[in-house]
């Protein structure tokens, strides 16, 4: 009887491993080939000439493109900082003092998820028209709209971090030792949710760098709009920039996962703490 069961389990495991191999290989082909194809396309020589990096080297010779890259990077930085400054204190405060408001804050933060970006454009269009005429028509004003766009993703990332620590006990302990609220935030809460903060920051940077709908319809030339326009004139260069922006996102993600891990390891090594103080960076 036992031998029969073991036999069944053995064949089942072999079948399962075969299934996994097939699925992973198929997924790998579907997801990696297009990225590889972008590399291949952007290094093609004209006509029958050998492979070149000409398209990559000429990125700097398109002033509009360079301006768009800088604008998108600035937008990513502004949006991310503004998001953290707005969300982290609010979420901590709501958890500590206004637990009844938590549902409402959550609902407001997750709302942009259910509204298509193009619908946001319809509402923002007259607003940006007015702002362009009376206030400033700089592309950096897009940061206001992007702040709304990144709210749901950042909220969820930060919420995971805050749920993993005991905000109340930590802040009461710090307060009873004479720390000001600023110290509590900066020296107690923030270090404990550093992993979640990095996650939220990554999501917001990735979202802003990839954003097209709002910029295109509100008539601002950010990175993606410029890539799309350039694609009609010089496909090689625009695809090279597209690959570069993608690699940048991957690089940031990997960097963040390493920073998160080394912090956790160090904390374990130094304090040996297990319990509510730990595990915020998952």
């Amino acid at each position: 009887m036992a031998a029969v069961t073991r036999g069944i389990q053995q064949t089942r495991r072999i079948k399962l491993e075969a299934f996994r191999a097939v699925v992973f290989v198929a997924a790998g082909i579907f997801f990696l080939v297009p990225i590889g194809a972008m590399f291949e396309f952007s290094t093609r020589g004209a006509g029958d000439q050998p492979r070149t990096l000409a398209a990559w080297q000429s990125i700097g010779t398109y002033p509009d493109l360079v301006a768009a890259i800088i604008a998108s990077l600035e937008l990513a930085a502004i949006t991310t900082v503004a998001m953290l400054v707005l969300l982290v204190p609010t979420m901590v405060w709501v958890r500590l003092k206004l637990p009844r408001l938590r549902r409402i804050v959550e609902f407001i933060c997750l709302l942009p998820l259910t509204i298509p970006a193009i619908v946001l454009v319809v509402g923002l269009f007259p607003l940006y028209n007015w702002m362009g005429n009376n206030f400033s028509d700089s592309i950096l004003t897009l940061a206001f709209a992007y702040l709304v766009l990144v709210l749901p993703y950042s909220y969820r990332a930060l919420d995971v971090g805050l749920a993993a620590i005991d905000v109340k006990t930590l802040s009461e302990a710090a307060r009873s030792l004479g720390a000001s609220w600023l110290t509590v935030m900066w020296r107690v809460i923030v270090p404990n949710i550093s992993g979640a903060i990095l996650n939220a920051a990554f999501l917001s940077v990735a979202l802003v760098l990839g954003e097209y709908t709002l910029a295109n319809n509100l008539l601002y030339n950010n990175l993606q709009v410029e890539i799309a326009m350039l694609g009609r004139a010089n496909a090689g260069v625009s695809i090279a920039v597209a690959v570069a922006s993608l690699l940048f996102a991957f690089a940031v993600l990997i960097a963040i996962s390493f920073v998160g891990r080394s912090r956790r390891v160090r904390k374990e090594a130094i304090t040996g703490l297990t319990g509510p103080l730990q595990g915020a960076s998952s």
Partner: peptide, 20 residues
Amino acid sequence: ASGVLAQFGGVTLAFAFIAT
């Protein structure tokens, strides 16, 4: 990878398939 790809910018995505 799923996290990045689910948020993959639409323009880049279109170009990736045009190049493929």
